[in-house]
Structure formats: structure tokens, C-alpha cells
């Protein structure tokens, strides 16, 4: 069985909450797991955090690099642009 899972782990805090919500909205296959002080989100193949979705949720401009303030860990190949933070496994 092929295993192409990616994940992101975020702190469980006010700044990360809209990021988690945005991931939930934009990545229907993502699975959200809660741990003490931490949220770990697993997804098959690809996981995207989109700037527009987060901005919609928080009502202000949001730079995807702000994710550096709340990320704990990741797995997958990173692609960071001004519009999105993406984790993927290319096949």
C-alpha cells in the first residue's frame, strides 16, 4: 500500500485556530487530531493553507509566512508563495 501522507502540526492557540479552520475548509481529505497543546493535521498527498481563506476568516491581511509563528512540525515537500503554504508529495 502506498503511503503518501503529509502533515502539519500547529500550536493550539488563537493564532493557529483560523489556520486550522482554513485547512479544514480547503482540504476535505484532511484529518484533524487534537493533542495536548497541539493540533496535528494529516492529509493524503497534499495539504494547502490558502491566504485568501485565512484572510476571509480573520478579516485582515495575512501573510502565509505568519505560519512560522505557530507551526510545530511538518512532513512533505514545502512550497511557500505569497498566496499559499503547501505541503505535498510529488508522485
Amino acid at each position: 500500500m502506498s503511503n503518501n501522507m503529509v502533515y502539519i502540526a500547529l500550536q493550539n492557540n488563537e493564532e493557529a485556530r483560523p489556520i486550522v479552520e482554513a485547512i479544514e475548509q480547503d482540504n476535505p481529505d484532511a484529518q484533524i487530531n487534537h493533542f495536548p497543546a497541539m493540533v496535528k493535521i494529516d492529509a493524503p498527498g497534499r495539504l494547502a493553507v490558502n491566504r485568501e481563506t485565512v484572510e476571509e476568516l480573520i478579516g485582515r491581511d495575512w501573510d502565509p509566512q505568519e505560519i512560522h509563528l505557530s507551526v510545530i512540525s511538518i512532513s512533505g515537500n514545502v512550497d511557500e508563495t505569497e498566496d499559499a503554504f503547501i505541503l505535498e508529495r510529488k508522485r
Binding site: Q11, A37, M38, H68, L69, S70, V71, I72, S73, I74, V78
Partner: peptide, 13 residues
Amino acid sequence: GFSAQSDEARHMT
């Protein structure tokens, strides 16, 4: 720990 770990994503990459 989490403050350090937030740098870790860069290190892992």
C-alpha cells in the same frame, strides 16, 4: 519547546 519547534519546520525542510 514550541517556540523552538516553530523554527524546526525550517530546519527539517
